[in-house]
Write a protein that binds this DNA or RNA. Structure first.
Length: 631
RNA sequence: AGCGGGGUAGAGCAGCCUGGAGUGCUCGUCGGGCCCAUAACCCGAAGGUCGUGCGGUUCAAAUCCCACCCCCGCUACCA
C-alpha cells in the first residue's frame, strides 16, 4: 500500500530580516501540522527557506562590501539557528539561489513566455533620483523620499509583464470549484470580491539591477520578486513527487500573491495548483504593531529566553489564539500560560504521578479514565486547524487527571491500579501533545517508557520502573511592572467610569451626543495652521484607465511648481470646463495612489449630502495668482 | 472612501456559521479542602443591561436581519 503524502510549506523569508514572532508562528504551525501528519502515518514533506534575490539584498550586500551570494550565505544561519531553537523539523531549507530552483524558474518562465502570457512593456513607479531606487506609496513620507525628503517622481522602465488580467475568469472558477482553496473563509471572500473588481498585469522583470534569475528569453532582464519567489514551492518538489502542496502557510499580507498570482502562473505553465492556502493573522506585541523602526520586534532568541523553553513558546503561540485571527504577544501572557498550564497542570501532574508510582508501583488494569479524552475529536480539531481548541481538549483531560489523583486520595489508598490508569493517561497526553511540545513529550516518553506514535495510543502501557526525575518545566517569575501599561489601563478604566456615571445620572443621551459632537468639531487655530491651501490652475486634464469618476489633473501651483491630483469630479465637469480654471488646492494632504496614479493633495468643492451635486470652488477674482496662500 | 475582523464578569478569551435559561475557559478576588505534587492540586462563591437602538424576524436572539457608534487591520508590480 502506498502511504499518503502530505506536503506543507512556509513562505520563504527575506534573509535580511531578524526571525521574529511572526516568522516563528508560521513556521511552528507548519511544524505542528507536519509532525501531526507524520504521527498519523503520512509521508510528509515540510519545506521552508529564504527569498534571496532582489535589489534590496544587492544594495545591502554592497553596503557591507560583499558579493550578494556571500552576503546571504552569512545570513542564512540566523534562520536555521532560530528554527533549530524552536525544534522545527523541516525536510528542506530552500534558497532561491539554489541551482535547481533557478533552473526551474527559467523553465517555467520560458513555458509561460511561449504561451504568450508574457509581454514587453514599461514599468511605472515612484522613484527617488538621489537614492536611484523606487519607493512604494507606503514607504514615502508625504510623497517624499524618507531619506532625502524630496518628492519621488514617476519614472518608467522597460519591463516584462505577466498577463494576470487574462486569468480573472479562471481564477474565479477555481475559487468556486474549490471552496477549501483559501482558509479561512473570510479571506476567501475577500480575495473573490477583489478579483471580481478586475486584475492588473504585473511586472516580472527589472533591468536596474542584476541580482536575480535571468529571463531565458532576454538576458538583460532579471526576474523580479514574486515570480521567482512563489515558484520555490514547486521547484523544491518537482523531482520528488510531493507536488502539489497540501498546505501553504502564510500571514494575511501575502494572501493576494498566493491566491491570485500563484495559481494564475501555474495555470499558464500548465502545472497543478496547491490544494490549500492556510492564512493566519498578525501578531502584535503588547498591542502594538511589530515593527523594526519602533523597536517592537521580538526575535526568536528573546522569545525562547523568556521561559528558557522553546516548548512554551510553541505552546503559547498555538494555544493563545484562534488560527486565522490576529493575536497579541506579551511577556506576561506567555509566562501566565507557561506557569499556569505547563508548570502547574501538566508538569505537576507528571511530577506527582511519577512520584507516587516510584513509591507504590503499578498494576495493570483497564484505563477507564482515558474515556474522558476524546481522541477522535482532538484529531478532527487539528485537521480543521483549530489548534487552540485541540489543546484545550487535552488540557481539560489533564485537569481530569489531577482531579482523579485528588479524589482517589492515592497517597492514602496506595492504589496501584489507579496509578496505572494515570500513567497510561499520561502516555496518551504525551502522544497527543507531541506535535506541539515535542521536547517535553519525548522526556515524558522516556520517563514512562513508551514510544511516541499513534499505535501506542491504543496499546496499554507496559509495566516498567518509573522514577520521579527532574521537573519538566520550571516556573518563571514575571517581574516588570510596565508603567505605560498601567497608564493605559487607567485611562480605559476612567473612560468606563465616566460612562457609568453618565448612565447613573441619566443624562439624556441625545444631549450628551450633541455635546460630544461639539467637542470634536472644535478645532484649535494651530490645527488650522497645519492646512496649506493655495490657488492653483488646472493645466491638463487626463483620463485614467478604468476610472469613471476620476480625472487626473496637472496643477500649476506657482512657487510650489506642478502637482498631479486625482479628483472625483468626472461626472460633474467636462475636460473643457476645467482646463485653465483656477481652483483652491489642499497641498499637504497625505498623498495616496488612486487607480495607480499618485494623487498629491485634493481640490476643494462644495457638495450636497448625497453627493449628487458637486460644485468647484474657485477664487472669485480671476487675477488671483497661482500659489497664493489661503488664510 | 471601500473591504475585512472585533466590541461577552476586574483582565484576556471561547460561544455566533447550525437561535433554546448568560453557557464555558484562563487569570484575578473571596471562602473552604488536601498534604501525593513544582506555594502546587481539588471543591465552592461573588462578579455580566453579551457596544447602542425599548429596532426587526421568532414561541424563543449573545447567536439571524437592519441602522448607528467605537477599536484594529488591509487596499495588489512591497520581502
Amino acid at each position: 500500500m502506498k502511504t499518503k503524502k502530505f506536503y506543507v510549506t512556509t513562505p520563504i523569508y527575506y534573509p535580511n530580516d531578524i526571525p521574529h514572532v511572526g516568522h516563528a508562528y508560521t513556521t511552528i504551525v507548519a511544524d505542528v501540522i507536519s509532525r501531526f501528519y507524520r504521527l498519523n502515518g503520512y509521508d510528509v514533506f515540510f519545506l521552508t527557506g529564504t527569498d534571496e534575490h532582489g535589489k534590496k539584498i544587492q544594495e545591502a550586500a554592497e553596503k557591507a562590501g560583499k558579493k550578494p551570494k556571500e552576503f546571504v550565505d552569512e545570513l542564512i544561519p540566523k534562520f536555521k539557528d532560530a528554527w533549530k531553537k524552536l525544534n522545527i523539523n523541516y525536510d528542506r531549507f530552500i534558497r532561491t539561489t539554489d541551482k535547481d530552483h533557478e533552473k526551474i524558474v527559467q523553465e517555467v518562465l520560458q513555458k509561460v513566455y511561449d504561451k504568450g502570457d508574457i509581454y514587453f512593456g514599461k514599468y511605472e513607479g515612484l522613484y527617488c533620483v538621489a537614492c536611484e531606487r523606487y519607493y512604494t506609496e507606503k514607504e514615502l513620507e508625504n510623497g517624499n523620499c524618507p531619506i532625502h525628503k524630496r518628492p519621488a517622481i514617476l519614472l518608467k522602465e522597460d519591463s516584462y509583464f505577466f498577463r494576470l488580467s487574462k486569468y480573472q475568469k479562471k481564477l474565479l472558477e477555481l475559487y468556486k470549484k474549490n471552496p477549501e482553496f483559501i482558509f479561512p473563509e473570510s479571506r476567501r471572500n475577500e480575495v473573490i470580491s477583489r478579483v471580481k473588481e478586475g486584475l492588473r498585469d504585473f511586472s516580472i522583470s527589472r533591468t536596474s539591477f542584476d541580482w536575480g534569475i535571468k529571463l531565458p528569453f532576454d538576458k538583460k532582464h532579471v526576474c523580479y520578486v514574486w515570480f521567482d519567489a512563489l515558484l520555490n514551492y514547486y521547484s523544491a518538489t518537482k523531482e520528488n513527487g510531493y507536488w502539489p502542496a497540501d498546505a501553504h502557510l502564510m500571514a494575511k499580507d501575502i494572501v493576494w500573491f498566493h491566491a491570485v498570482y500563484w495559481p494564475a502562473m501555474l495555470m499558464s505553465a500548465g502545472i497543478k495548483f496547491p490544494k490549500r492556502l492556510l492564512v493566519h493573522g498578525y501578531w502584535t506585541f503588547d498591542k502594538e504593531k511589530i515593527s523594526k523602526s519602533r523597536g517592537k520586534i521580538i526575535n526568536v532568541d528573546e522569545l525562547v529566553s523568556l521561559t528558557k523553553n522553546s516548548d512554551s513558546v510553541r505552546y503559547f503561540l498555538l494555544r493563545d489564539i484562534v488560527f486565522g485571527e490576529d493575536g497579541d504577544f506579551s511577556e506576561k501572557a506567555l509566562i501566565d500560560r507557561h506557569n499556569g498550564e505547563l508548570v502547574n497542570k501538566l508538569g505537576n501532574l507528571i511530577s506527582r504521578v511519577s512520584g507516587l508510582i516510584e513509591k507504590y508501583g503499578l498494576e495493570k488494569c483497564e484505563n477507564l479514565l482515558a474515556k474522558k479524552m476524546n481522541i477522535k475529536k482532538f484529531n478532527e480539531l487539528i485537521k480543521n486547524y483549530e489548534f487552540d481548541k485541540a489543546l484545550n481538549e487535552v488540557f481539560s483531560f489533564i485537569d481530569r487527571c489531577n482531579e482523579y489523583v485528588q479524589h482517589k486520595k492515592i497517597w492514602e489508598t496506595k492504589n496501584k491500579k489507579v496509578l496505572y490508569e494515570l500513567a497510561d493517561s499520561i502516555k496518551i497526553i504525551a502522544i497527543l501533545l507531541y506535535p506541539f511540545i515535542p521536547e517535553s513529550c519525548e522526556k515524558i516518553a522516556k520517563q514512562f517508557n513508551f514510544k511516541i506514535n499513534f499505535k501506542e495510543l491504543k496499546t496499554p502501557l507496559k509495566i516498567s520502573k518509573i522514577q520521579k526525575g527532574e521537573h519538566l518545566f520550571s516556573p518563571v517569575e514575571y517581574k516588570k511592572e510596565d508603567k505605560q501599561k498601567r497608564d493605559k489601563g487607567l485611562q480605559k478604566g476612567d473612560k468606563e467610569n465616566l460612562q457609568k456615571n453618565v448612565n447613573n445620572e441619566k443624562i439624556n443621551k441625545q444631549v450628551l451626543i450633541h455635546k460630544i459632537m461639539e467637542g470634536i468639531a472644535e478645532v484649535d487655530f494651530s490645527d488650522w495652521q497645519k492646512i496649506d491651501l493655495r490657488v492653483a490652475q488646472i493645466k491638463e486634464v487626463e483620463e485614467i484607465p478604468n476610472a469613471d469618476k476620476l480625472w487626473k489633473l496637472k496643477l500649476d501651483v506657482g512657487e510650489l511648481g506642478e502637482r498631479t491630483i486625482c479628483a472625483g469630479i468626472k461626472q460633474f465637469y467636462k475636460k473643457e470646463e476645467l482646463i485653465n480654471k483656477k481652483i483652491i488646492y489642499f497641498t499637504n494632504l497625505k498623498p495616496r495612489i488612486l487607480k495607480g496614479v499618485e494623487s498629491q493633495g485634493m481640490l476643494l468643492a462644495a457638495t450636497n449630502s448625497d453627493h449628487t451635486k458637486v460644485i468647484l470652488i474657485s477664487p472669485i477674482d480671476n487675477n488671483a495668482e497661482n500659489g497664493m496662500k489661503i488664510s
